[in-house]
Simulated scan of single mutants.
Amino acid sequence: MRANQARLDLDALRHNLAHARSLAPAAKAMCVVKANGYGHGALTIARALEPLTDALAVACIEEALELRSGGITCPILLLEGVFEANELPLASEQNFWLMIDNRQQLEWLEQAELATPVTCWLKIDTGMHRLGVVAEDAAEFHERLMACANRTGELVTCTHFASADELDNNQTERQISLFNKITADFSGPRSAANSPGVLGWPDAHYEWIRPGYMLYGNSPFPKPHPNTEALLPVMTLASAVISIRDVEAGEAVGYAASWTAERPSKIATVCIGYGDGYPRLATNGTPVLVNGRRAPLAGRVSMDMITIDVTDLDDVSIGDEVVLWGPELTAGEVATHAQTIGYELTTRMPERTPRVIIAP
């Protein structure tokens, strides 16, 4: 069989959640497992986190139903709320929590006939300008939700940061200030901190934190930060060498001849490509690890294969392990060579690449 594996260290996942809790010890934790658990496998991740978290969060009801069908019983928040009024009875039946971020969703909830009331979060737009109630309408929405017969439990008021990963950008400070002003007279808990908020903005921890990307061991910051040093990558993407050949100086390698040998070179072919989740836009020189040693990408990424320059490595053989990212080579570092972010690398991991649990 092909050697490709996305190896999952669930002990690292639990460690990362514990780290998030240590940074915000007074807050409850809602672990974000949307987009198939950031590409790691939603059910696998949810099952590991459920005993340790206060709630889970997904993007939509389809993702929530997958978790319920897999035996997950804890509260699950639909981060984008419902898209149609007919989702509300199902959300009530399955104990899904609802995000309310616009007037249509509020009216659907008020007019619905539900067997059981639902827990709601009210989203306030403090500067992201994507989802959420504008500041001028926040008090009205809060009052109507508090009075809504179809709502139960605490009403959590939340917002989402646009630039929290940029620690020198004062937009986050402005968002926190506006959020504090809007919610000053609201009863109930608040939430604002996504992963960069948890790691870098303690004033944003409030009563609920919403760690996502950091749970998987990846830093959301472009530069080192002391609070990210403890994070342990959950996924190691690995493959193996399947061919080795000598290439003379002046000879090209791969599609479009994008890499040309400047010296007599030894090229190893690895059986992984963009069809397996490795980014097609990774440039020449992108590092991989061959038996734990760095070697650069040489040539364009193909659907099923990449080629790497192992001229400076001794004793490379067919079958040797190649790590594309993991604890010693982060997804974030690889992403910079592909002009993207680590979030995209993991969430685009296809089913073709098997997830293998190495630490249950």
Rank of each mutant, 00 (worst) to 15 (best):
N4H: 12
N16F: 04
N16S: 08
A24W: 15
A24V: 04
P25E: 04
A27I: 14
K28R: 10
M30E: 03
C31W: 01
V33A: 05
Y38N: 04
R47Y: 14
A48G: 09
L52H: 12
D54E: 10
E62Q: 05
E63S: 00
G70L: 07
L77R: 02
V82K: 02
V82I: 09
E87N: 08
Q94K: 07
I100S: 00
A115V: 13
A135Q: 12
A135S: 07
D137I: 00
E143P: 12
R144F: 00
M146S: 06
D165V: 01
L167N: 10
D168R: 09
Q171C: 08
Q171E: 04
T172I: 04
T183S: 03
A192W: 01
N194P: 06
G200Q: 08
W201K: 07
R210N: 08
M214F: 15
F221C: 04
H225F: 09
T236E: 02
L237E: 07
I242S: 08
I244Q: 02
I244C: 04
R245V: 15
G250L: 09
W259D: 01
V270R: 12
G273K: 15
G277T: 14
T283P: 08
N284Y: 03
P287F: 01
V288D: 11
G292C: 07
R293A: 15
L297R: 02
A298H: 02
V301S: 02
V301H: 05
I308F: 02
I308E: 13
V316A: 12
V316I: 03
E321L: 01
G326N: 14
E333T: 01
T336V: 06
Q339P: 02
T347C: 05
M349D: 12
